[in-house]
């Protein structure tokens, strides 16, 4: 069963934060209402949460949703929030090659709910073979390698067999542990992106060569441990203009091997209000404010890094 029947996406706070961070980043890169030739491709599930934001916040109207469960067609048609969303049916590996990539820049969010699978690398291949400069790539998956765990030991041989030709030959048991898995997944995706770009760039002039700028590297755990990785695909000649945007200074941008671990605080709405009164603030100052020390420090820390994006849920009775 698809995960939209397990979770209501709106109630997953870390996911909600991630979505808002992503939208904010896109606004920084593309501006709002300025991109007639920019299209969004996503896996929106019946909630279409990403699509709603993309259309409302960025003003994009060239939107494609990929959905595998063709049996639920009526449900998807019903829940589609805007008429500008085109529904494409099938697996991502089948649908992505059929998308017309030459019509303009694309933002692709491969928001998988499964753990890392070889087919995801096929989707990476399609994007990095076809997407034009100034496109954005984002991939989310479950990063747990739980399936390779037997009797508390990770079976790296089984893993290497499943990811033959995709992962290094010397992957160790330790790399599969929950602590190290995000780094391994990042490395595998990065390598695959690089190998795609190196082919594609082979005959291009220096200015035309495409480079991938990693911007997002996030982990979070609403239920399952999730991993999100992405960045901006850009012609080399545009790198200087891109640098001027100083995207790297945004607090949630991660361009190296350190990932942002999104943790959402478990606090009441009154507590949120109390904390908001002292924000924005420097971390040390915020954490030493006496009036709110009754809120556990751990929760205050989490809130400090996410408060601008933290979702507020209210139950409505009628």
């Amino acid at each position: 069963m698809a995960s939209y029947n397990i979770f209501n996406y709106h109630y997953r706070p870390a996911k909600s934060i991630e979505r808002k961070l992503f939208i904010e980043l896109l606004k920084e890169l593309y501006g709002v209402n300025q991109n007639k030739d920019l299209g969004y491709i996503g896996l929106g599930s019946v909630f279409f949460a990403d699509f709603k934001l993309i259309h409302k916040e960025l003003g994009l109207s060239n939107l494609i949703n990929i959905e595998m469960n063709e049996d639920d067609m009526l449900r998807f048609e019903f829940n589609k929030p805007f008429s500008c969303i085109k529904l494409k049916w099938g697996k991502t590996t089948d649908v992505l090659p059929n998308i017309n990539w030459t019509t303009g820049k694309k933002i692709l969010w491969l928001d998988y709910d499964q753990s890392l699978q070889p087919y995801m690398f096929e989707d990476i291949d399609t994007f990095f073979s076809e997407a034009p400069s100034e496109s954005f790539f984002l991939l989310t998956c479950n990063y747990s390698f739980h399936r390779y765990l037997s009797e508390n030991v990770y079976n790296e041989e089984k893993f290497k067999k499943d990811f033959e030709g995709i992962c290094r030959l010397d992957v160790t048991k330790e790399e599969l542990t929950k602590k190290n898995a995000p780094i391994l997944v990042q490395e595998m995706i990065k390598d695959r992106i690089e190998s795609n770009l190196s082919s594609r760039n082979a005959a291009l002039s220096d200015e035309e060569k495409l480079e991938f700028h990693q911007l997002i590297f996030i982990t979070y755990q609403d239920g399952a441990p999730m991993f999100t990785y992405g960045g901006y695909l850009l012609r080399k000649e545009l790198a200087r203009d891109f640098k001027k945007l100083q995207i790297n200074k945004l607090p949630y941008v991660r361009s190296g091997e350190d990932f942002l671990n999104l943790q959402s605080p478990v606090v009441t709405t009154q507590e949120l209000d109390a904390m908001n009164n002292f924000l924005p603030n420097y971390p040390s100052r915020f954490l030493s404010i006496k009036k709110i020390t009754f809120i556990p420090e751990e929760e205050r820390k989490k809130y400090l890094t996410t408060y601008r994006y933290y979702p507020n849920f209210v139950e409505i009775r009628d």
Binding site: D125, T126, E130, R200
Partner: peptide, 15 residues
């Protein structure tokens, strides 16, 4: 280089 650059497009077409 020309073949290397063209190959990804060939493969997407083939897929």
């Amino acid at each position: 280089p020309v073949f290397k650059s063209a190959r990804p497009t060939m493969l997407t077409a083939m897929k």
